[in-house]
Simulated assay, not measured.
Amino acid sequence: MEIEILRIIDRESSTVHFHCKAGEAWGVWQGDSEANLGTHHIEIDVPNPPQSFKTHASVIPLVAGDPWNQNSGVTISGKLESLGEDSIACILVDQDIVMVELTPGNEEPRVGTGIECHVTAIHLYPLNL
């Protein structure tokens, strides 16, 4: 996923404010070097299962979180591309796949439907293209 880092929120925790085609949010930079402003190609990792998720007939691809309040979490939504036996969901967000571990719940998501997940944080891993 291509992102643009707009602001370094906290250098010590490597928390950044970024923008991408699917929205604007905050995340924790996981690169070997410090995060810097500008365009980067990254992979999003969700370190913990979502606090909640909902399925919809369709959904707008979205990565959103209030960069001024990191306690608010991040919303990820897109099309459910696959769901493994290990509860790993592959969600298509715009043109990129984000993998999320879903915890068993009342709702069993179906491949091909829209899914919206609310997570406590996302990690951003830079890719060397």
Rank of each mutant, 00 (worst) to 15 (best):
G31D: 09
R11I: 11
I44W: 08
H17N: 14
E81Q: 11
E43P: 01
C20M: 01
E24S: 13
E85N: 09
P61D: 01
L62P: 02
Q51S: 10
D45F: 12
A25R: 00
V46Y: 07
S13R: 14
G38P: 02
Q70K: 06
G23M: 02
S77E: 05
S82T: 09
P47M: 13
E85Q: 11
G38W: 06
V74N: 06
V59P: 03
V63G: 01
V59E: 13
F53A: 13
E34Q: 15
N36S: 15
V28F: 06
H17E: 14
V59H: 01
I76H: 10
S72F: 06
N71Y: 10
E12T: 12
V16W: 08
H40A: 02
K54I: 07
E81K: 14
A22N: 03
P49N: 11
V16R: 13
G65V: 10
A89T: 02
P67E: 05
W26E: 12
P50H: 07
Q70F: 00
G23C: 03
F18D: 04
N69L: 13
E24N: 10
P49C: 01
G23R: 04
N48M: 05
S72G: 13
E34V: 03
S58D: 14
W26D: 05
H17F: 08
A25G: 04
S72Y: 00
H19Y: 11
K21R: 08
Q70G: 01
V59C: 04
G84N: 07
E12M: 07
G27V: 13
D66H: 03
G78V: 05
C20S: 05
I76P: 14
G31N: 12
G65P: 02
G23H: 10
W68K: 15
A25Y: 00
N36C: 13
H41W: 06
R11Q: 13
S82G: 02
D10E: 12
V16T: 03
P67F: 03
I42R: 08
L37K: 15
